[in-house]
Simulated scan of single mutants.
Amino acid sequence: MTSITTLPGSVAATPARATRRRGTGRVGSILLFIAALAASALVLLPIAIIAFTAFKPVAEVNAYPPTLLPEAWTLDNFAQIFEELPFGRLIVNSFVFAGGVTAFALLFDSLAAYALARIDFRGSRVLLIAIIASLMIPFQATLIPIYQLVSDLGWVNTYAGLIAPRAADAFGIFFLRQFFLSLPRDLDNAARLDGASEWRTFWNVVLPNARPALLTLAIFTFVNNWNDLLWPLVFTTDAEMGTITSGLTLLTGPGGIIPQGVMMAGSLIAVLPLAIMFLLVQRRFIESVASTGLK
């Protein structure tokens, strides 16, 4: 019979090593948790300052040293911003601008991406290179020519002037094209064998399978346009046609001093729709971002 020799102390050492590993893992988890808390606090601190300052009276806003929480809560800043600006109209304009750009961008970007990803035609590669190259052109370089074109069309201070130049986006086309390439071509072939037209294949077969990418692009497009300042500031000269971001630049107090409390109240109102939208689609958004990386 063969005997198995055990090194002295090996049996006792194994549980000890396992205990040390568990202790090290627990310490690492605690450190990661602390780091996550610190990072979250840094991210949320500016939002907390905006929220609390919006409810402070003027004396507390200008007090030194500053305080985070207001001692006397007030809603005067919210009432004042609706008195000094057509703020209700600005909110509507922001929704029309951001929502309109998002809707048209999803339609036109998906059409162009489908053609580049699923249809073989002469010059498609050159067209794709041109679209990608356009991403390297600074937005400010094209602002004046676009404004001149919008002005010639008589679209200044109109929704058409705000939305039409942004109805398609090179990044959106490239993003959706890459996602369409990951979809099996058997779906297209099966639809065509059943007699489906190119449009029906696009609308009924490809788009339903591209919902994660479409949702991701929709959220990014809406948020970017909602927060945009330069575009509505340039293409609207009438305060009634501005957006929340451009309207806040019109706030001035006595002697040209910006009322910080009123400005923070307007900023808080501007942030709320985005926060509510994210809370409503948070789970779907995370799933969309994760699924767009799967092949």
Rank of each mutant, 00 (worst) to 15 (best):
S110C: 07
A112V: 14
A113E: 07
L116D: 04
A117E: 01
A117D: 00
A117M: 01
R118W: 03
I119Q: 00
I119D: 00
I119Y: 00
D120I: 08
D120F: 04
D120K: 03
D120A: 13
F121V: 09
F121D: 05
F121R: 01
G123C: 10
R125T: 15
V126N: 02
L127E: 01
L128K: 00
I129H: 10
I129A: 15
A130T: 01
A130G: 05
I131A: 12
I131R: 00
I131T: 09
I132P: 04
A133F: 04
S134H: 01
S134K: 01
L135E: 02
M136E: 01
M136T: 11
Q140H: 10
Q140C: 08
A141C: 02
T142S: 14
L143P: 04
L143H: 02
I144P: 05
I144F: 10
I144M: 12
I144Y: 07
I144A: 13
P145C: 12
I146G: 06
I146E: 13
I146W: 04
I146F: 08
Y147S: 08
Q148W: 05
L149E: 14
L149V: 15
L149T: 14
V150R: 09
S151R: 12
S151A: 15
D152G: 11
L153I: 14
L153C: 11
L153S: 10
L153W: 15
L153F: 15
G154A: 09
W155P: 08
W155C: 10
V156A: 13
N157M: 09
T158E: 13
T158A: 13
Y159A: 12
A160S: 12
G161F: 12
G161R: 06
G161T: 05
L162Y: 05
L162N: 03
I163Q: 04
I163T: 11
A164S: 06
P165G: 09
P165V: 07
R166F: 12
R166T: 05
A167P: 06
A168M: 12
A168N: 08
A168K: 00
A170L: 09
A170P: 08
A170E: 03
F171E: 05
G172T: 07
G172H: 06
F174W: 11
F174N: 05
F175S: 09
F175Y: 10
R177G: 04
R177W: 01
R177M: 08
Q178V: 05
F179K: 03
F180K: 00
S182N: 11
L183A: 03
L183N: 02
